[in-house]
Design a protein around this nucleic acid. Structure first.
Lengths: 226, 226
DNA sequence: TTCATGGTTCGATGATAAGCGAAGTATTGT
DNA sequence: ACAATACTTCGCTTATCATCGAACCATGAA
């Protein structure tokens, strides 16, 4: 209770890439589970757990236990404002990052975020779906259009089981690797498993990387043009 | 030019104790030389140099070369505001620091800051001088009272050479180890050398630590009571 | 010129902490 | 009861980066 400047502590807390990714993901205002945040940051749950408890102890995060889930959210508006301020400042100065984010650059290209596709490909898919008007931004989350439903049925997504779930069908999720949104929710989940089933891609063992094979990648790019 | 969240970079920049100390020292608005900042942070000039160039490259600091000195100041008001915001936030949350500041805990007790006494003892001296009305806070810096002048002459400080110098006589200097001010300026300098001459203390080789011997410390505490 | 001072660059060392695997604790579902 | 899921704790490895010593450059003083 006696010591150097506390802004150093605060800065170092935000200064870690993994933590910063989680924080920016939480800037949406939603509460996310520990595993979701781990996915968002591209790290394993254990590591995420350590980060999260640190941030909670520091008063940056607020924890709500619910069943076997632990939902984390920004502690209060002050945290959000501070993060916004820092982002604004960084943007103004046009900081070119040098430090490497989490591990693998392949993670930036395509990875799982919890249970759906994230990374460059995830963002591309989202952009494509929005551009073709298959999805529309709505007040709370995302909406599925008629054309969209047709498109996904053509793609052999089975909507029946999805609609029974309590989880929202479409949800947008901020991507740490390029600060844009990709598709989450049960639809995002279903699409990813469909990619697996089609043999386009598969999970790399012990990693969040989603490895597309050459023809899978080609097909993907054709299916979701920019 | 493609990467993770820039707030991580910014945070890590501010997150280092040494850099944070320099930044808070610069919050006074004054421009300080590289060596002064090194003293302020309790690190060697080489290390400070590395930190300073990093911060300048990141757009946090502004550099003005003048003769063989390099004066650093906060780049603009935005930097100041951001630091203020972070300090306010940290204060509100009452962060208790865990990370150790620069090296040695003895540094926190008494060390040289450029050419004058800093650390707990430096702050104590300043407090004492203010309480006894030997120094007074003025609009720009510190003022020496009549009583003060008498006191220092009693203490055998020779004012003649000091008044010829271009450097200000009294100057307050923010102390990183406890966020309070100590006495800088040529008077601060003169006092420190007087302590050496009196045999109260001496510099530890290759360190910024000012080691008081037992009787020197006792005399010091008596001379500058709280 | 020579010396001193303010700063920087380089190389090596060391401490801190991020990350993961493996094993453990809860809680929910069947 | 059993199994599966969500998350944590522990121990270890690895990388990063702050720090310092030593040597080097530049400016100013004698």
């Amino acid at each position: 209770m006696k010591e150097g400047p506390d802004i150093a502590f605060l800065g170092s807390l935000i200064g870690d890439p993994a933590r910063a990714n989680m924080l920016t993901a939480l800037l949406s205002g939603k509460a996310l589970t520990a595993s979701e945040l781990a996915g968002e940051a591209g790290i394993t749950p254990q590591t995420a757990s350590a980060h999260l408890s640190k941030m909670e102890a520091a008063g940056l995060l607020q924890l709500r236990k619910q069943g076997r889930h632990r939902y984390f959210a920004l502690a209060d508006d002050d945290v959000g404002s501070l993060l916004e301020a820092m982002m604004g400042f960084a943007a103004k100065k046009g900081h070119l990052r040098t430090r490497t984010g989490p591990k693998d650059p392949a993670l930036r290209y395509s990875r799982v975020c919890y249970n759906h596709l994230a990374g460059d490909l995830g963002v591309r898919m989202m952009d494509s779906l929005l551009a073709k008007n298959f999805l529309t931004p709505e007040t709370e989350g995302l909406g599925l259009t008629g054309d969209g439903k047709a498109f996904f049925e053509e793609f052999e997504i089975d909507f029946e089981p999805l609609e029974k779930l309590r989880r929202p069908l479409c949800k947008s999720c901020l991507d740490w690797s390029n600060r844009r949104s990709h598709l989450a929710g049960s639809l995002g989940n279903a699409l990813l498993t469909r990619f697996y089933d089609l043999g386009w891609a598969k999970r790399v063992e012990n990693s969040r990387i989603v490895a597309f094979n050459p023809k899978g990648e080609k097909a993907f790019l054709k299916t979701f043009p920019v």
